[in-house]
């Protein structure tokens, strides 16, 4: 009889466990629903290939071994405008230490983007995501959004919102390769 009771207990525990697991999963995924598709720190950065203003293509995976400071922006976005001079300045400091900056415009006209790049004297690659392809792959929401990609191609951190110059410095330090034989 106690054997029967034990069997019953096991049955009950397993049924309740299955139910609990199903419920927790459902509630967890609904609560985190909006963020679940967002690319997160620790993920492998989705590879992409985009053309810059000079017509040269840039593929993320080509920058393996280097840190990539990936910035999504638009010309109308005020905080984006604020952070570009800092990014340019720090790019000049860090590019010899193996950190590349890629600024992905969210699909505005070439005219607007190149005007902007000229106005700020940007020397890092500025690429345009015409079909919202890369935006979709990275599930970019509000602008600006910056992703720190480490030399292994992994996402180190996702930053939404404006960055100060100090923040940019510390972020670039985060993705700086340990020993940088390669510098472009």
């Amino acid at each position: 009889m106690s054997k029967k009771k034990q069997k019953r207990l096991i049955m009950r525990v397993s049924i309740l466990a299955v139910l609990l697991a199903a419920v927790s999963y459902t509630i967890y995924s609904s609560v985190t629903g909006d963020e679940k598709s967002l690319v997160r720190a620790g993920d492998q950065a989705p590879d992409f290939i985009l053309e810059d203003l000079d017509g040269d293509t840039h593929q993320l995976s080509d920058y393996k071994g280097q840190g990539v400071f990936l910035n999504f922006w638009g010309t109308w976005c005020e905080p984006c405008k604020e952070e570009f001079p800092y990014m340019q300045k720090q790019y000049e400091v860090f590019k010899d230490q193996g950190v590349e900056v890629i600024a992905v415009n969210v699909g505005e006209s070439e005219f607007k983007v190149s005007n902007f790049a000229n106005q700020f004297g940007l020397t890092f690659p500025v690429v345009r995501d015409v079909n919202s392809d890369v935006m979709d792959a990275y599930s970019i929401g509000p602008l600006p959004t910056t992703l720190l990609v480490n030399p292994d191609g992994e996402i180190e951190k996702v930053i939404t919102g404006e960055m100060s110059e100090e923040m940019i410095v510390s972020y670039m330090n985060m993705i700086k390769p340990e020993s940088q034989e390669s510098s472009e």
Binding site: I15, L19, A22, V23, T26, I27, S30, V31
Partner: peptide, 16 residues
């Protein structure tokens, strides 16, 4: 979440 929990509890109640 609490509404889902209620529906889940109804489901559990039905099964058990």
């Amino acid at each position: 979440w609490w509404y889902m929990l209620l529906v889940a509890a109804i489901g559990t109640s039905i099964i058990i």
